[in-house]
């Protein structure tokens, strides 16, 4: 059946089985490829999007479970204050390497800062340990989150 998804402020009607993971609807049906596939089992965070502002793994979120929650993806995260600051901090500290995990890292970091303006190291661990980076950019990710938090008014 058809589902209506609110993604980055626009409505999209998608005709797919209700148990289809949101990830594949985003990537394959809507061709929004910024959200990545890494594990398919909520083990790596590459597919992280926001559902009403909360970091959510799109690979295990079926489209029939989304309801009318607002979905935000990496493509639009820079439109929020927190997202823009996180992206800028990532650039300032040259966090990325291969870059494949970074959409998910930025989505998780932004969700963290939206709910906690000044996270401690252990807050960062809690929010970010679901996001794997095989390139090992973790040290700079931590620094960049702190930089983004410090830059907040």
């Amino acid at each position: 059946m058809a589902y209506v998804l609110k993604i980055n402020g626009a409505s999209h009607t998608v005709d797919a089985d209700g148990d289809t993971p949101l990830l594949w609807v985003l990537r394959d049906v809507l061709q929004m490829t910024g959200t990545k596939f890494g594990c398919g089992m909520a083990l790596c965070g590459a597919c992280t999007v926001h559902l009403d502002g909360a970091a959510t793994r799109a690979c295990i979120t079926t489209i029939d479970s989304v309801g009318d929650a607002a979905i935000t993806t990496i493509e639009a995260i820079g439109q929020s204050d927190a997202g823009r600051k996180v992206q800028q901090a990532w650039l300032d500290l040259d966090v990325v390497q291969c870059g494949y995990c970074q959409s998910g890292q930025i989505m998780s970091a932004t969700a963290l800062l939206m709910s906690n303006a000044h996270p401690s190291d252990s807050d960062i661990n809690d929010a970010m340990s679901g996001n794997v980076c095989r390139c090992g950019t973790y040290n700079r990710i931590r620094d960049a989150i702190k930089l983004a938090a410090g830059a907040k008014p």
């Binding site: 490829t33 910024g34 993806t73 990496i74 493509e75 990532w90 990325v96 870059g99 970074q102």
Partner: peptide
């Protein structure tokens, strides 16, 4: 230590990896 040339695309999800290739009419 200049900033990486390709970083902007990687923080905004625009960088195209192999897995992101879009070819009209493709199947999966």
């Amino acid at each position: 230590s200049p900033k990486r040339l390709e970083a902007a695309g990687k923080v905004s999800g625009r960088t195209q990896f192999g897995i992101d290739a879009i070819v009209p009419g493709m199947k999966f």
